[in-house]
Design a protein around this nucleic acid. Structure first.
Lengths: 239, 239
DNA sequence: CAAAACCGAGAGCGGTGCTCTCGCTTCGCC
DNA sequence: GGCGAAGCGAGAGCACCGCTCTCGGTTTTG
């Protein structure tokens, strides 16, 4: 990455940035499906073919956007959660959840790119997996700390824990990615993954309009969802 | 709708069907974003402009697809739930949830149309709202019956019910659409809406690839989510 | 049986992703 | 300093897209 600071390299850097910024701006207004490389080129004052000097294809541009966007969301959630006292587990959980929703609501286009319908022909490369797991990693860490502090999830549907092999399925990935220590409370991890999907499901329903008319105050609605999930994990949240 | 059965009207009917079928077939392979009216026209052996005799715009075709698809999902869920003994509340809940997921997994393209990123310029007309509520209506009905049978949702995060005005927000819509009787258990209704979002959030994460590597057996994972949600609503589910 | 309505085909508009070629500028190296 | 190589932006062109309009031919209607 330490390219020589020649005039050309410098220009390339700034132009790459300009293209990415223009693309993200368009993403906010048109959505991922309508992301037009030609329009982006026009926005930065180029002809469309010139953009291909910087991104070999539309998919490559998409990948760069994915990486950048996952990173930004991860930053936001980690920063919000990190600003809360370590022993305030409910506060950390709520801060992480609220930061998550806030970012998504402020960047609906980016949210659609990350959590909406996948672009048909496009498969996200491997190196997007790590940035994509940052949010859930924060959640798992909070729950892990809570477990260490004695918190226990509510009993399962029939009063017993989730089956061991279901837990193993989910846990294998989490441990493999270093999200959590191998001796983590397995059931809590599974519940956290379920909570993660509910959080994003709620945001998805909000942003995609499936709750219009049903819910008045989305922020409060989301807070209650987050609080319920926390309670289910044995973490007390004061709204 | 009782158009005279002239040769022309008959031909129009079958051709409209053929176009819709071709569009849904393409939806399954390309996804909603890549739905090309020209390609659909080719599939039914027409030139693209001829399709406009049947649907005045791509959006109109989209609306027709929405109506049909919501209807099909509603049919599937209602049929599955209706086949279970009325007093077997856990069975009804599980049947509805499983039918919901099964349909989505079998029709990923249609699912993306209904619950994925909204098409940028397109706003679904009013008459898609009613068909869109059929699934949640089934869920609310089960929970209502459970309430009548004495089931009570688990206590809220801090041991108290959800705030009354949050409940009122959500309930207003539900009652306005005749989803539930005005004297319904308000808190249970709110919880049901939350459960509804989690069910579709789980399917969304499954189909959009956010759980790849994390969850091995999606069906069992989903069953556990459904069972947990039921337990939270005071409904016992045997897996 | 004629007028009106409907229908399919085709051309055409401006847009898209992407490829290739063509000059020009900048770079690295001797 | 000079020179070949590499990088760059512009433009033309390909096949595709949604959509409009016109033009003959068919069917329906009064």
């Amino acid at each position: 990455m330490t390219t020589p600071r020649t005039a050309r390299a410098l220009a390339r850097e700034t132009l790459t940035r300009e293209i990415l910024d223009a693309a993200r701006a368009r993403l906010g207004t048109e959505g991922p499906a309508g992301l037009s490389l030609r329009a982006v080129a026009r926005d930065v004052g180029m002809v469309s073919s010139a953009v291909y000097r910087y991104f070999p294809s539309r998919d490559a541009l998409l990948t760069a956007l994915l990486l950048e966007t996952y990173g930004e969301l991860g930053d936001a959630v980690e920063a919000a959660e990190g600003a809360v006292a370590r022993d305030d587990l409910g506060g950390r959980w709520l801060a992480a959840c609220r930061a998550l929703r806030a970012w998504c609501v402020e960047h609906p286009g980016d949210f659609a790119l990350l959590y909406g319908t996948p672009v048909p022909g496009y498969a996200a490369p491997r190196d997007t997996v790590e940035p994509a797991t940052r949010v859930v990693r924060v959640l798992v860490r909070i729950v892990g700390d809570a477990h260490a502090a004695g918190a226990r999830p509510a009993p399962g549907p029939d009063g017993v824990a989730e089956p061991a092999d279901l837990v193993a399925d989910a846990l294998a990935f989490v441990v493999a990615h270093g999200l959590v220590a191998p001796d983590a409370p397995t059931e809590a991890v599974v519940r956290t993954l379920m909570a993660w999907t509910e959080l994003f499901g709620t945001v998805s329903f909000e942003l995609f309009g499936h709750l219009t008319g049903t819910v008045g105050d989305y922020a409060r609605w989301f807070d209650h969802v987050a609080a319920r999930l926390a309670a289910d994990l044995g973490i007390a949240v004061r709204l």
